[in-house]
Simulated scan of single mutants.
Amino acid sequence: MVHTVLVVPVPALEGYVRGRWEHYDPAWVSRDPAFTHAHITALAPFLPSPAEGDLARLAAIARAWPAFDFVLDDVTAFPDGIVHAVPVPAGPFAELTARLWREFPECPPYAGEYADVVPHLTLDLLGPAVSTASVTADLAGLLPVRARAERLELHRYAEGDCRVLASWALGARLDAVADVSAPA
Rank of each mutant, 00 (worst) to 15 (best):
P89E: 04
L43T: 03
V83D: 03
H3V: 00
P92Y: 08
D124N: 15
T36R: 15
A27P: 13
R99S: 07
V164W: 05
V135Y: 08
F70G: 08
A62P: 10
V145Y: 09
P119Y: 08
I82F: 00
P87Y: 13
V164A: 02
E159N: 03
E52C: 02
P108R: 01
P108C: 12
F70A: 02
L143I: 02
L96W: 06
P9M: 01
T97H: 10
Y157M: 14
H39K: 09
L142E: 13
A111Y: 01
A64W: 00
P105A: 04
P50G: 04
A176I: 06
A169E: 06
H23L: 15
A85W: 08
Y16Q: 01
H120P: 03
E14D: 08
A85N: 03
D69T: 09
V118F: 00
A147E: 02
A59C: 11
E159Q: 14
P9Q: 08
G112A: 05
G160H: 09
M1Y: 13
V5I: 13
L13G: 01
G160R: 05
R20K: 15
F78W: 08
V177F: 00
P128I: 04
A64Q: 07
L142C: 12
R148N: 11
A184Y: 12
D175H: 15
R146K: 10
H3R: 09
R146A: 10
D124Q: 03
L43K: 01
E22L: 14
V117D: 06
A85F: 01
A98V: 00
A67M: 03
L13W: 08
H39C: 03
A64S: 13
P105H: 11
V17P: 02
C162G: 13
E22M: 13
D25N: 15
D73K: 03
V118M: 12
H23W: 11
H120L: 09
S181P: 01
P92W: 04
R20T: 12
V86E: 12
P48T: 08
R156K: 14
P11I: 03
V180T: 06
E113W: 05
P109D: 12
V75D: 06
R102F: 10
Y114K: 15
D124Y: 04
R18D: 00
P50V: 08
R148I: 09
E14W: 07
R173W: 09
W21T: 06
P108W: 05
S30Q: 09
A85Q: 01
L100S: 00
D116R: 15
D161Q: 13
D32N: 04
H23A: 13
L121F: 02
V75Q: 05
